[in-house]
Simulated assay, not measured.
Amino acid sequence: MTVTLRDGDLVLEPTSGSAEFTGFAIVLDGERVGTVALRTESSDICSIRWNSRIEQPFLVARALRLALQHAFVAMAVGRVEVRLPVGSTRDIRAASMGGLRREGIIRLPGERPDQLLMARLVDDPPSDTSAGFTAILNAGLPTKRVIGQGLVRDERGRVLLCELTYKREWDLPGGVIEVGEAPSVGLVRELEEELGITVEVHDLITVNWLPAWRGWDDACIFLFDLGVVNSSITQDMSLQPSEIKAVHWCEPDEVRDRATAAAIELLAAIETGHVPTYREAPKAAE
């Protein structure tokens, strides 16, 4: 039998339930202000949903914490999850304050809004502890894509560009840095994977912020100096065929004809000899 749950002046009173649903009325200072329900999805997972006239997310969060505790203790599930429209700011804030972590975006067809998947596990650290608060906050913070690229020149001063399989323009060698990976380390890894060479990373030339472009999110490029090498190095490269069609030593005219707009602009700035440590690239034409 479902029991009444209480947190000071906020009470969850059981409503009619079933084998599938466990429902509660949210009562604040003796007034019914909403409902919250747990739905059994499997032996170890349930979902949570709520509807409330309460404006303050922290008050809704108190009700959610009571319901979550009931799910973990009385229902013995290991995971409680919810899917919320991405524009439901108040409900998303209440869910975060209640202890649910953001896990990702679920895309939906047609005109329906995408949904944010949030969940809490029975063994997550309590949300009112430092570890729990950090985990919840970290899961909801924005992420920024980081790219490591290298400037390689040959004995004639030509720049090495990669002809890619997934876009028509050529680009500087490098790639996306993995989570927890240093940009310089990621650059070395990318060149080993894609070109089959091991490089020595020298000084950082600049950090170049790129605006969103052609469906790609914005990103920060860490451009490193990889020094001057003999042009024959390309003969010994082992190209990763899924990403690299070919590599080319390019004079300035060929860079302007073939490279991405960001690479053209960046290399032109480098040629002036006055590139700042941090810069922002202009938005390229689509």
Rank of each mutant, 00 (worst) to 15 (best):
V146N: 04
R189K: 01
S18I: 01
I92L: 14
I136T: 11
R279Y: 08
G98P: 00
I233Q: 04
V77Y: 06
D9F: 06
D225N: 11
G110L: 06
W216T: 11
P183Y: 04
A281G: 03
V60P: 00
D171M: 06
G99M: 08
V36I: 02
E163S: 06
S127F: 10
P126W: 12
A63E: 02
T4E: 12
A94L: 03
G98Y: 00
E41D: 11
M75N: 14
Y166S: 14
M118A: 15
W50V: 10
S42F: 00
V77M: 10
L10A: 09
R79K: 09
I26W: 09
I147Y: 03
T134R: 15
L210C: 08
D225E: 08
E190Y: 03
V228F: 02
R65F: 08
M1E: 10
G34L: 05
T206E: 14
A285K: 07
R153I: 02
L239R: 00
T15C: 07
D114N: 13
T206M: 08
A94R: 01
W213H: 11
E41G: 01
A269H: 09
S96M: 15
P109G: 10
I205Q: 04
C250E: 08
D236E: 08
G157E: 12
V80W: 05
L161P: 06
N230D: 14
A95H: 04
L164K: 03
V86F: 11
T234V: 09
E81N: 09
W249L: 11
R153F: 00
A67N: 05
R32P: 09
V228I: 14
D29E: 15
W209P: 10
R62I: 01
V176N: 05
V82D: 03
L223G: 02
S238I: 11
H202S: 14
M118Y: 07
R258E: 12
L38Q: 04
R258L: 14
G17A: 15
R79T: 09
H70W: 01
L141H: 09
R158C: 11
G78V: 04
Q56Y: 08
L141M: 14
R279S: 07
A76D: 15
T206F: 09
L226H: 05
D124L: 08
D123P: 10
F58H: 15
R168M: 09
L66D: 02
V152C: 05
R32G: 07
I177F: 06
E31P: 00
G186K: 07
V228K: 10
N138T: 14
R39A: 02
S52K: 04
P173G: 03
H70R: 03
T206V: 04
A212S: 15
G273K: 12
S52Y: 05
T165R: 07
P183D: 11
T165I: 01
P109E: 08
G17W: 07
L161K: 04
A37V: 08
E181Q: 12
L204I: 04
V11D: 00
I205T: 01
P173M: 06
F224C: 14
R256L: 14
R189G: 09
G87D: 04
P183W: 02
S242E: 10
A259M: 08
T15S: 02
S18L: 03
D128C: 13
T22E: 06
L108D: 02
P109A: 07
A135F: 13
P211S: 01
K144P: 10
I105V: 14
L66T: 02
E200H: 13
T15W: 01
R101K: 10
A212H: 12
